[in-house]
Design a protein around this nucleic acid. Structure first.
Length: 104
DNA sequence: TAGTTGACGACGG
DNA sequence: TCCGTCGCCAACT
């Protein structure tokens, strides 16, 4: 049952991100017309309490930095998951970020 | 009820 | 080019 809550939209969009791709808070915020990228981060923060798992590790900030990894159960989990999907991480940043970037 | 916080982004100096 | 500040809007205390 989908609700029109804005975090539900974020969850839904985030789940649509294909493996091996990533997107940014700004893109999601703009696409969903949230008005501010902070809302996206907040929604994902609550995603840990959501029933459905959300691949929040595929969402990074506009620099391609894994700023959200500190909010994961394990700090290294985010990088590990991304590497498992073929995304290389270097110094907490995504290598070839532009190539890995996914647009809704 | 009001104030503060927050996984960010854009702009100015 | 790098650092600092302001703005977004909703949720939490």
């Amino acid at each position: 049952m989908k609700e029109n809550n804005y975090f539900q939209k974020v969850y839904d969009l985030t789940r649509k991100i294909p493996a091996g791709k990533v997107t940014t808070y700004g893109i999601i915020a703009t696409y969903l017309e949230l008005g501010s990228a902070r809302m996206v981060g907040w929604a994902l923060n609550k995603s840990f309490s959501a029933d459905n798992p959300v691949p929040a590790h595929r969402v990074v900030n506009r620099n391609g930095e894994l700023t959200g990894r500190n909010h994961f159960p394990a700090p290294g989990m985010m990088q590990k998951l991304l590497e498992s999907e073929g995304i290389k991480i270097e110094d907490n940043k995504i290598v070839d970020f532009k190539k890995k970037l996914w647009y809704p």
